[in-house]
Every structure is written in C-alpha cells, then in structure tokens.
Write a protein that binds this DNA or RNA. Structure first.
Lengths: 206, 206
DNA sequence: GTCGCATTTGACCAAACGGTCAAAGTCACG
DNA sequence: CGTGACTTTGACCGTTTGGTCAAATGCGAC
C-alpha cells in the first residue's frame, strides 16, 4: 500500500523483508528473469500479500534502484576537494572496492540494469549521476592543473575506477573460475593491484 | 533440425538469420527477457519455423555462447610470448577495445550471462578460459621475472584489461549518459586513456 | 512433370506469469 | 471485549510464453 517505509511495525517488517528478498532475486535473475512468486516466497509472504505492500513488480524494482542509487554514489560524494589528491582518489577506490565486497547484489542489480540499456534509470544517469561526475571531474581537473597528480582524462579516470572495482562484484563468478580455488577471497589481492595501478598512473615522478 | 551450419542453401541462410537475430535480442534483453517470437520476427521467420532449425530457445542461446567464446578468447590467444612484452600487452588491449567497439552485442551477451552467475557456461570458464589465462599468466610472470615489465599480479592484470575494455561495450549507456553528447564516440579517448594507464603501470622507469 | 524430401504455417496446448478481488483473519486501542 | 482499521489469503482472470502437430507448400533431382 505504502511505497515508502511503513509506519506500523508490521509494515516496516514486511517492506524490509520484501526489499531484501527482491534484491536477492532481481540481482540474481534480472528484472524479467525474476518472478513475483519467487520474491514473495523469499520474503515469506504470499503473492497477494506482497502486492498489498507494492502495487506491482515494476514498483519494487524502481524502489530498489532509487534506494540503491544513493548507496552507489555516496563513495564518490565523499571525495574531498580540499584533501590530498592522491590520498582522496585512493580512498575513493578503497570505498568502491569495499562496496563491491560488501554489497555485490546491489552492484549486480545495477549491472543488469545498465547492460540492458538502463530502461528504468536512464533519467537518473543523465541527471543526478552526470551532475555528480561533472562536479568531481572538475575537482580532478583542478588537481591536475595544479600539478598535484599526473594529467589524464578525468571522466575516463572515473570510468576506470568504476569498471575495475565493480568487476569484482559483477564478474565474481568469472574471477573465481579463472583463479580456481573458490574458497580464496580475491579481494585483498585485488586491492593491492588496483591501488598500485592508480598510484603508478597518477603519482608524480620527479 | 540441424544445430550446426546447415547444409542446404536455405538452411544456411536461415540459421544465419536466426543467430544474428538471437544475438540482437538476447544481448538487449537477457535470456529470460528475450522471447522466441521476438527472435523469430527479427529473423523474418515464424516461430514454428524457427523451432524447426533449433530445438529450443535454450539451444539457440547455447549455440551463440559456444560460437562467441572463441571470438572472445582469440585476442588473448594472439599475445605472442616471443614478442616485446609491453608491445604485446598494449596490442592485446587495443584488440580488446576494438572488439568492444565492433562487437558490443557479443560483449553484452557475455556480460548478461556472467552477471547472473554464468548458469550456461560455467564449465567453459573453469576449463577453456582458465587454461588459456593460466598459460598467458605464466608468460606475463616470465616477462616480469626477466625484468622486461614491472611486477604486478598477472591474473589481476588480465582482469583489469577485461574490465576496462569491456566496460565501454557493456556500460555504453552509462558512459554516454555521463559524457553527455550521445553523438560523440568515446572510444578514441578511451583508447588513449587505457593505453596511458597500462603503459605507466608496466613500463620500466630507469 | 512428378516424386520425395525439405520447409513453412495456422491452430493449438499447457504452464507460468502479473495482477485482482472479496472474504476471512488479526491487531491495536478505547 | 468490541470495534474499526490493517493484514492475509485462496480462488480466480487474462495474457504471454515455449513448444507441438498435422497439414500445406516449395524445391530440386530424375
């Protein structure tokens, strides 16, 4: 019934269970691949009961994407224009890598959405996301002009951070298949590697 | 009826039309999101006629993945153990970037498959793909031991090449949304950036 | 031209799907 | 403990989907 966080105890519990279950199912199967029954079962509810809290499958998906967008952008928002350039960039990378490790389902949900042409969130990409990136790209450009990091294309710098960090969440299966040994955690190695990569690219060599 | 390339003229024409149409539809909508009717229509056939050539939707998908896997691995196969290390690696990166530009649908098809846990091609990843990467990682390691490029984790080096190059195919919508101006081709800039990135990481600084 | 085989099609089916609805059950609160 | 609002459910509906089938059509070799 109520799209936002419920006001009663039961509403809160059930909307939470639904969003959790929907995240699980959508991220593993994509929007079309997920069924309302599947989500309802995972949430411990009957299908009509689930549809009592959200008007449609589409609405659950939209709600998830909208909620997650902030989680997704926050690490970049935290990059401080007044901090030390290289430190700020490396800290941003570490935050993104943490996000990939701790919220892989969220990452895969976005990946699914974008790979298929972002049918549900294109406006957000062209609005909120673009605005934030424009702002931070200016900061990066300034740091480069001030000679505090090496000069590279600021937008592609951000793209490369996204692609490298999210790869370990989105393509997790492939990474583990290639590394063998499904038990070993690839993230510590990944962090070393990625930090080295960006340090060598951006640090000044006098 | 016949999964492999048909033997008659009509068989060849129709199987080709089906695989082309299926690539288009599967890459844009994912496996579950694609419908047989959609593929049939895109191929200019009726649904029963399409199912005369392939026994099921699943079979078309499998056939596509199997065919594309080679296209996907060839750029890495071409990396020559006897060539100049940095040149070979940069040439590999250029080939992968070309592949992302020229075959974005193939890239998205794989991305869809892997993000959702690689349900259809996990064995191939653990077999053929892992074997090839193991072999090439040894070459990279040798180059590093010989002091001809800088020392980094060879597997993550390969992962980073994959993630950076495929990002421009798989997340094309996002890249264009952030850059604005849907008309400009981001690939020339991307190539400059990525080549710079890996050169600075790998080249020796005496 | 005609015969055998390949190809194509309209009609059809069962299952799965997203969603509705009226009725039943449950909770909070005076 | 009763009442009104909130919650839950089984039965149901129309549509979409993957796939089947028998019949019709087209094609090429003789």
């Amino acid at each position: 019934m109520n799209q936002t966080a419920g006001t009663t105890r039961i509403q809160r519990r059930n909307t939470a269970a639904i969003t959790e279950a929907a995240l699980e199912v959508f991220s593993a199967n994509g929007f079309r691949g997920a069924t309302v029954d599947q989500i309802a079962k995972a949430a411990g509810l009957s299908k009509p009961n689930l549809l009592y809290y959200f008007p449609s499958k589409e609405a659950i998906h939209q709600h998830l994407l909208a909620t997650l967008m902030d989680t997704w952008l926050d690490p970049l928002r935290e990059m401080d224009p007044e901090g030390d350039p290289l430190e700020e960039i490396l800290a941003y990378i570490r935050r993104k890598l943490e996000a990939s490790r701790d919220f892989p389902r969220e990452s895969r949900l976005f990946a699914n959405e974008i790979v298929q042409g972002a049918p549900h969130i294109l406006p957000t990409l062209e609005g909120e996301l673009k605005d934030l990136v424009d702002e931070k790209a200016k900061v990066l450009s300034r740091w480069m002009e001030e000679g505090r990091i090496q000069r590279v294309h600021p937008y592609h710098l951000i793209f490369s951070i996204w692609s490298l960090t999210q790869h370990y969440a989105d393509f997790d299966v492939q990474v583990r298949a290639v590394l063998g040994s499904g038990d070993t955690d690839p993230f510590p190695e990944a962090e070393d590697y990625v930090i080295t990569l960006f340090t060598r690219m951006l640090a000044l060599k006098p």
